[in-house]
Design a protein around this nucleic acid. Sequence first.
DNA 1: GTCCGGCCTGTTACAGTGTAACGACCGGGC
DNA 2: GCCCGGTCGTTACACTGTAACAGGCCGGAC
Lengths: 180, 180
Amino acid sequence: MDEHGTCGHHDHAHGDHAHGHGHGPVRTADLVARAERLAQDLGLQFTALRRRTLEVVAEEGRPLGAYDIAERLSAPGKRVAAVSVYRALDFLTEHGLVHRIASRNAFVPCEHGHGAGESAVFLICRSCGSVDETISAEIERSLDRTLAQAGFKPASRIVEIEGECGACQGRGEASRTEPC
Amino acid sequence: MDEHGTCGHHDHAHGDHAHGHGHGPVRTADLVARAERLAQDLGLQFTALRRRTLEVVAEEGRPLGAYDIAERLSAPGKRVAAVSVYRALDFLTEHGLVHRIASRNAFVPCEHGHGAGESAVFLICRSCGSVDETISAEIERSLDRTLAQAGFKPASRIVEIEGECGACQGRGEASRTEPC
DNA sequence: GTCCGGCCTGTTACAGTGTAACGACCGGGC
DNA sequence: GCCCGGTCGTTACACTGTAACAGGCCGGAC
Ligand SMILES: [Zn+2]
Ligand SMILES: [Zn+2]
Ligand SMILES: [Zn+2]
Ligand SMILES: [Zn+2]
């Protein structure tokens, strides 16, 4: 829980330090700002626990389990129970700040701020464990067509592709476990 | 496990009795035959446990959890442990006889016998719990394009849509819990 | 001020999901 | 006979998720 201490945490708001593992187009500060705006607009409470949970998920370069998050949030003498993390994650996922990766039982920060209707495609690398979130209007359209044809009224969509990311393909197949 | 007896089970092999709620084109006998052929061709063992597991999954009209399957396979004095079911399910999923529904931690019989490359789209009804498996070349294509563009080499795909099936839309929204 | 009600969090307990490890059994190949 | 691979039974355990209850906090009603 302190092995990420080398990069400085979150007190000074500089722009684009790549955070080492390089996955990080997710700017933690941006995500937090988005959450604060959202809470402001909708009259919701962006509490300290929710904020810290969002930060932990955003800092990590790979999907994190709820218990992992709880561990990172805990300090000697002040442990955070997983159930609290689940509640915070409920809030964050409901408002599109983090996404749940169903095939991994884990959570990633949202990289897009897509509208409610837009659903994401998650590219999960088996080698490095990184998850990339992309949006494709084309996939959306073909899905809609197929669903309409089947007379099915969609409420939520899950599209998760497992495979090998571009970086890992270049780099000796399934050699490394680190995301780049 | 006998409350579905009204539809006649699987002894006469006629083609398209729609099974009422329409989810049930999975003919258990067909699936078992397919498994036996597959085992024959590849030199695999389609054991009694694997067969019974496949049958249980195929008979049910909705996704079944591994522990549910274990329960159905158990008899007084002869209980089947969940871990055994998991191993059987590993075999069955590896060879495309059943599919895992990641968002439900549950398993459904394959309704198609699609080739290895083809991935399925699962339509999961929130009202009745039924799962319909469809294949769309169009979705496949748009996915392939998006993946190629991202430089991502896919290995397996998960597409699960939650919503309301056609039958349940006609029938008073989220009223019934039974698939027809 | 006090009371009340909503919301969030801490805590405990528990159910559900999945895997590791070991041993036994059974099938062929030698 | 022996060995070897695959399957299965059994135990134990880790991980994931939720229910239920209690306490704190805060803003509004009175
Ligand atoms: Zn997103
Ligand atoms: Zn990778
Ligand atoms: Zn299938
Ligand atoms: Zn339905």
